[in-house]
Write a protein that binds this DNA or RNA. Sequence first.
DNA 1: GTTGGATAGTTAGGAACCTAATCATTCTAC
DNA 2: GTAGAATGATTAGGTTCCTAACTATCCAAC
Lengths: 193, 193
Amino acid sequence: MLKDLPRYECILEAVRLHPDLDPSACEAYLNLLRAGDEAYRRSEVFLNEHNMSPGRFTVMMLLYDKIGGKPVPQTPADLAEKAGVTRATVTGLVDTLERDGLVTREHDSGDRRMMLIHLTPKGHSALQEILPGHFKQMAAQMAPLSEHERTTLVRLLNKVAGIPSAAHIVVHSAAPEGAAHAAGDIAAPITSK
Amino acid sequence: MLKDLPRYECILEAVRLHPDLDPSACEAYLNLLRAGDEAYRRSEVFLNEHNMSPGRFTVMMLLYDKIGGKPVPQTPADLAEKAGVTRATVTGLVDTLERDGLVTREHDSGDRRMMLIHLTPKGHSALQEILPGHFKQMAAQMAPLSEHERTTLVRLLNKVAGIPSAAHIVVHSAAPEGAAHAAGDIAAPITSK
DNA sequence: GTTGGATAGTTAGGAACCTAATCATTCTAC
DNA sequence: GTAGAATGATTAGGTTCCTAACTATCCAAC
């Protein structure tokens, strides 16, 4: 939210009035929020140019199988769970995506409570058109960092986000219960709720 | 947006279909967005418990002089500029803050186009009540990081966010045009638009 | 001194999120 | 087999943001 962050000196000033304020924590926290927001907004600008929003894009990416490159149908509840939003939000996103002809709804033949959301050919080609630019855009944003710095950044971010340890995930990719590698299911966040 | 990030292996898989995809950039980017979102949402939850939202809180903090601890009036345009949102958004936020008796609007005596937003005594004490918890909450979120790690994190985040260099800011605190240290005016982002 | 352009704030309408309530279908237990 | 709980999706209504259009005031130039 803050466009310009307070200088470190100003934070130190504020500590006089508020002894609870941990200056280095405050600085790290504000910079994290700002950098995250910056990166998010840049992507948003790019997506907007292609009649996309982060929410719409996420839904479409979830319908797009990264491994096979083929569209795979999913239920709204699946999409909500994977995207980390409510089912009501998915309903709204699918509404506009369907309106634009990028996805279709279909009743599940087995359980008629469920819907199956499909990427249409139009949706698939829209994605093909957007993805290269999106990837370039991500690469450009991270370009200032060396490979080593990226690794460090990921490690520190995971510490903050409450991910136990980045290391063990790659090592023993447990997956005790089968299925669903598509979006990866590493480290279920504490944000369960 | 994504609750669970793809595993690194899955990203590597995806590179086969999309040569533009820079795996380490993608991983760093996704982790940045997720960690930022996590931190943001945690703060949001805390603020919500006190009848606040990030937007409302930011406006009130801008009206609260961190140095003197005294409320200082500001125009909506000022607030919008410092908060990095549109003036229309500030109008909406001030509407609800005024409704709740936390701020008041007053016509500028000199230029009757302008309004001056004041923190009311009620608003001031609401802030006093929230701030200690907010600070503790920030400290708790950053607790997993050592002082050294915090410095590193800030340096890497600034690289990504396009801040030229964190060092020189503290060193020669230029401030060529006078005034307004309240919210700090370091490093105007590229996001000017 | 009046016209025209800039500036400050608001209004109107839309998108993406939320919670809570509703409707339809399925499953479970008796 | 039927009542009631559980589950999937939607609807209704609210919030926070946006852009674009509007209103009011000020200032500058003729």
